[in-house]
Amino acid sequence: MVKISVKNLNIWFDSTQALKDVSLDIYANEILSIIGPANSGKTTFLRTLNRLNELERQFRMEGAVDYDGVDIHSLDTQILRKKTGMVFALPLPLPLSIFDNVAYGSRMHGIKDKKILLEIVEKALKEAYLWDEVKDRLSTSAFKLSGGQQQRLCIARTLAVGPEVILFDEPCSGLDPISTAKVEQAMILLKETYTIVLVTNNVKQAARVGTRTAFFLSGEMVEIDKTERIFTAPADDRTNDYIEGKFG
């Protein structure tokens, strides 16, 4: 089932074109990994899906992005962003307590009942594999957590809103290998319930967790296929060169 369908997407920031005629479908309950070198347009693509690019001045786009068959521009941005959660490259806890971080989205959507909030927070923290580490200190500042814990907190915060799609923007770029493994483990289990789009600089990470993998280069999508296929028999030589580390 197609969850998000992108057709002929072109994006410019001022006069620089960031994405060139990208078309791809994202299926429900898959992990789509997007790999590619810096400045290949991966993050721009991701930020198109929750319309975060539109905050930038000089942003211009052509083409269509459909979410469950509906053009995202005819959806209310708040509803769209509620459905498509995002985890950023660096752990970005808000300057609030652990509890308030996770409860933030729900509160903004009007949930005030303390008991319901507590349930939501507990469920989200468990899904992000953080509950056991923080359950005794929910009221301490989120900045007291380690980098890896902070990133899992950010995942929990995203889950607490009840999204259908989660956009990961290089979620492990600032983490050590052990923390990375924990985040990846969380992602694989989240796939059962959510649709995941993962932008990553780490080719091996895409190989480990991706259902399908897309390769972006200089704003173009070179190819997209099942992850095994991309890593064993890519159709395009450039994909092969990138995966083998000949450039990057």
Partner: peptide, 19 residues
């Protein structure tokens, strides 16, 4: 980045400013 996080969670612009 705080604003982006707040907006990405579906908060409105005014909620982001206010909270």
């Amino acid at each position: 980045s705080f604003r982006e996080v707040s907006l990405s969670l579906g908060a409105s612009k005014w909620q982001t400013i206010r909270h």
